[in-house]
Simulated scan of single mutants.
Amino acid sequence: MSAKALARNLRDEIAHLKNEQGINAIQSDDLLAYLNRVIDAPEEEVDPVKLEQIRAQLQANVEDRKAQQSSALEMFRSVITAGQNAIKTSLLMNGGATIALLAFLGKLTTENPGKLSVFSGSLMIFTFGVFVIGLVSGLTYL
């Protein structure tokens, strides 16, 4: 019997004696006799089947929590990988566009050098894009 169960039994017994029998004082011998009866009473056994059910439920809860944690970790890894792939793709596209525009401008300067200033803004945008993507790619490792 736990201490709480003993305290509850003692409280209930004293309340019963006071309310129903009108006893306001308890002799120490009577209290000791009651406590000896409680101590000598057979222990209440915990049902082994119920105990195993509780253990199984707790183990299932632990395994469920591990699965949730593992799933959350994998989701985080996939987000990081997707972000890195997006950065690589952006770098490849901006770099390719810059090189293609440079090749076009190189061909244009041999044929019509006056049109070169029209495409300089586009070249600056793609070059700035490559710079920013390179900067973002470097910051992902920090």
Rank of each mutant, 00 (worst) to 15 (best):
Q69D: 09
N85R: 14
V79N: 11
Q57Y: 11
M93R: 09
N112L: 02
K88P: 00
L101W: 01
L51A: 13
L91H: 06
A67L: 11
M75C: 02
S71M: 09
T89C: 04
K50Q: 08
T81D: 07
M93K: 06
V49E: 10
Q84V: 10
A67E: 07
A100R: 08
T109A: 10
A103R: 13
T98G: 03
T81W: 01
L92H: 06
A100C: 03
M93C: 03
A100F: 03
A72L: 10
G95P: 09
N94F: 15
A60R: 11
I87D: 10
S78Y: 05
A100S: 08
A56S: 10
E63T: 12
E63D: 15
A56E: 15
G83I: 04
Q68H: 02
Q59S: 07
A72W: 01
S71Y: 04
S70P: 00
A72N: 04
L92Y: 05
Q84W: 02
I87A: 12
M75E: 08
L51W: 13
R65K: 07
I99W: 03
K107G: 07
G83V: 01
Q57T: 09
M93N: 06
E74M: 10
L91E: 02
T98I: 06
V62R: 11
Q69V: 09
Q53C: 04
V62L: 15
A82C: 03
L101V: 03
R77Y: 08
V79P: 00
A56W: 05
E111V: 15
A103N: 12
F76E: 13
A100Q: 09
Q59F: 13
N94G: 02
G114A: 12
Q69T: 12
S90Q: 06
A60D: 05
A60C: 01
P113K: 05
R65F: 06
F76L: 15
S71E: 14
S90W: 06
V79S: 12
A100T: 08
A60Y: 10
M93D: 05
I99E: 12
A82H: 01
S71G: 12
N112I: 08
K50F: 10
A100G: 01
A60F: 10
E52R: 15
I80E: 14
R65C: 07
L58C: 06
L73A: 14
G83P: 00
S71F: 10
A103F: 13
L108N: 01
N61R: 04
Q57E: 13
T109S: 12
Q68G: 06
G114T: 15
T110I: 08
G96L: 03
E63A: 10
D64W: 05
S78V: 05
A56I: 03
Q53M: 13
L73D: 12
F76D: 12
V62E: 08
F104T: 03
Q53Y: 11
A67S: 06
L105S: 02
K66L: 14
